[in-house]
């Protein structure tokens, strides 16, 4: 799975603080892990002090963008928002002008939670307008 792949991060600048368990990356930030790709202006990486592995990545941008390939056929989920939190146990939280597209399904909302493992999502209006969702009907099985 993507989350068991090595993580590659590129940026113009970075700051690392082992004691605080945090690293920040600034400027043209690109994160890759397997088929996952996140682009942002600023990235904060939090480390689980117990396991010394990354627990979550917080990307902010104008907007921050996320994409992941879902299957061999090349279908992808793409998302954008002011802030994207990628929690490495397989959750994606999109905050602020959130948008997510998977196949032909689309959502616009203040807050979107996307569960990467079972590919389900939750959308919430947090005071800035309504949740707008366009879901394509499942293909009818031909008799």
């Amino acid at each position: 799975s993507d989350t068991s792949q090595p993580l590659e991060i590129q940026a113009d600048e970075a700051f690392y603080d082992q004691k605080a368990g945090e690293a920040t990356y600034k400027g043209d930030v690109l994160i890759k892990q397997g088929t996952i790709e996140i682009k942002a202006d600023f990235l904060k990486v939090f480390t689980d002090p117990a396991t010394n592995t990354f627990s979550s990545l917080q990307a902010t941008g104008t907007p921050a963008r996320f994409t992941q390939q879902l299957d061999e056929a090349g279908n992808r989920v793409t998302s954008r928002g002011d802030q994207i939190d990628y929690i490495t146990d397989g959750r994606l939280e999109i905050n602020g002008k959130g948008y997510l597209k998977r196949g032909l399904d689309e959502i616009d909302a203040d807050f979107i939670l996307y569960m990467m493992k079972n590919e389900t999502f939750t959308a919430e209006n947090r005071g800035n307008g309504r949740v707008k969702m366009t879901l394509q009907p499942a293909q009818e099985k031909s008799e």
Binding site: P6, E8, I9, D12, E13, Y25, Q33, N52, T53, F54
Partner: peptide, 10 residues
Amino acid sequence: VSGHYEQATQ
């Protein structure tokens, strides 16, 4: 800056 984190989220 480029980071390669092998055990990042193992």
